[in-house]
Nucleic acid binder design. Structure first.
Lengths: 86, 86
DNA sequence: TCGATAATTAGACAAATGTCTAATTAATGC
DNA sequence: GCATTAATTAGACATTTGTCTAATTATCGA
């Protein structure tokens, strides 16, 4: 839960998730959408992966990142706990 | 959105929200539940207020904090955007 | 009016975070 | 084999964050 909120607590990473919503992308393709250096992008992607928000798959020299929704459900559950009994 | 995720990105603050789920509490009552100094608690409450996750009401020397769910709906909406078209 | 209580503000400080450049690893194609 | 390309790792650095103690503000009760 900690790593999840940590991963979400950055506008760039949230934008990455919204980009990946359109479908899997390689690290390079993701990097093109932002004006940060490749290592910075790589670092952000790493944090997203740590939170299990994305999965990565290496094919040749390319690494493709894919959105992983299952962990979002955990967040959804946490959130709904507040809505439950008002 | 930024202040919201920032506010949620701390276990103590999330625990505060869960505590307030049981009903409004004064700053002192909230402080009793944690082993941090009062100023630290006050600071956390301030961040929650900045994110509009809680509202504060001063009655005499006591300040009562109340959970405010409306902003959670914003987060819920952001979240559901991912669930929408899988 | 004054001491006690509730809470916040001010300021310091270590730890975590986001960014960069330089170096490294791994795969491709000639 | 070697230059090129994709991506990550390493390390540095400024900024932000979470915590503390000390000081301040505001209210209560006698």
């Amino acid at each position: 839960m900690n790593t999840l909120f940590k991963a979400l607590n950055d506008p760039t990473r949230r934008a990455m998730l919204e980009l990946l919503r359109q479908g899997p992308r390689t690290a390079g393709e993701i990097a093109e959408h932002f004006s940060f250096s490749k290592p910075t992008i790589s670092h952000h992607l790493d944090l997203l992966r740590q939170a299990d928000l994305v999965s990565s798959d290496k094919q040749g020299q390319y690494v493709t990142y894919t959105l992983n929704m299952t962990v979002m459900d955990e967040l959804l559950g946490w959130l709904l706990q507040f809505k439950s009994d008002t």
